[in-house]
Amino acid sequence: MSDMNGKTVFITGASRGIGRAIALACAREGANVVIAAKSDQPHPKLPGTIHSVAEEVEAAGGRALPLVLDVRDEAAVKARIDEAGRYFGGIDKLVNNAGAIRLQGVEKLPAKRYDLMHQVNARAVFVCSQAALPWLRESDEGHILSLSPPINLAPKWFAQHGAYTTTKYAMTMLTMGMAEEFRSDGIAVNALWPKTLIATAAIEFEVGGPELMKQGRTPAIMADAALAILKRPADMMSGQAVVDEDLLRETGITDFDAYRYDASSDKPLLPDFFLD
């Protein structure tokens, strides 16, 4: 496994939730962490900004660079990635974590909401990866990691929210394609997805509310799995879409109770989308 100390990790959507957890996990390993997100000012309902996470990263032992970024803006993506590369002297890892969700069928989903999901999910993987590629080629441990699921074509995953499903699957298909395209460059490209619901703001405000979060795990499990992937050599793992618990079991972890969001809840954990 490679050493993350001194490596530079660029994370989109890193001001809260899974992105923040990955940022802190990398920081504890001594990494340079670029916290790229739209959250420059405090939100009345959602905790965390790029600046508060930057402070946490520094406290955890890493170096931080908070950058305001809307991943829908192609020019801004390139400018911010190049800024980060110049600041830290390179970029070794790109984590495509930013995401948008709306669980509606085609009939009632506004087209502008579909456009948002496409831009923040699928298109951002394309734009961010393309912009980061010159920097990743210069690294001896280049890696692109996107938070998207193994592709499951069972009709039930399309029936009620086909638009969201197709944008998340597009992320994984881009992952598969880039893994082959960039293999000769020594750049690993993989996707990661949670086995169970993860208690984040997206779940609380877009999916099921605070009660549903009791049936989930904390973002820490995704962070630990992401770190395990990012530390693997490019020739050891590329072109895979893996599930957090399955990957961590391979590393020898067998006790997952510590990841439970509400340890006092007797409700069963809910499997995440796209997993049978």
Rank of each mutant, 00 (worst) to 15 (best):
A75Y: 06
G89S: 12
A79Y: 10
R86M: 11
Q119D: 15
L69T: 07
Y114H: 11
K112W: 13
E74I: 10
N96V: 02
Q104N: 05
Q119W: 05
G61A: 13
I91A: 00
I101E: 09
D70Y: 00
V106Y: 08
R102I: 09
E74H: 10
L69P: 09
L116V: 09
D115A: 09
G105K: 01
D70E: 10
A100I: 01
L69E: 12
L67G: 08
A84H: 13
V71T: 14
I101Y: 09
V127C: 03
R80E: 09
R80Q: 11
A122F: 06
G89I: 07
L109F: 00
A60F: 08
R63D: 08
A124W: 01
D73M: 03
D73R: 00
V71F: 01
V125T: 08
A60D: 07
E83M: 11
N97A: 06
L109Q: 14
D115Y: 00
G99W: 02
L69A: 12
A124Q: 01
F126S: 02
A122D: 08
C128E: 03
Y114M: 09
R72C: 10
A60Q: 03
A76G: 04
V68H: 11
V95Q: 09
G62P: 11
A84F: 11
G99D: 04
G62R: 09
L103E: 10
V106R: 04
L109W: 00
K112V: 15
E74T: 14
D92R: 07
L109Y: 02
K78F: 02
C128R: 01
I101Q: 12
A60P: 09
R86V: 15
G61V: 13
V125H: 03
P110A: 02
R123W: 01
K108Q: 12
A100H: 11
L67P: 10
S129R: 02
L67K: 07
A75N: 13
L94K: 03
K93M: 12
R113N: 12
V95Y: 05
A84W: 10
P110V: 06
P66D: 07
K108V: 12
H118M: 14
D82I: 07
L103A: 15
N96I: 04
D115I: 06
Q104H: 06
A76V: 02
S129G: 15
R72Q: 14
R123Q: 11
P66W: 02
A60N: 05
V106I: 14
C128W: 01
A84Q: 15
K78G: 12
A64K: 12
Y87L: 07
L109A: 03
F126R: 01
M117C: 05
R63P: 00
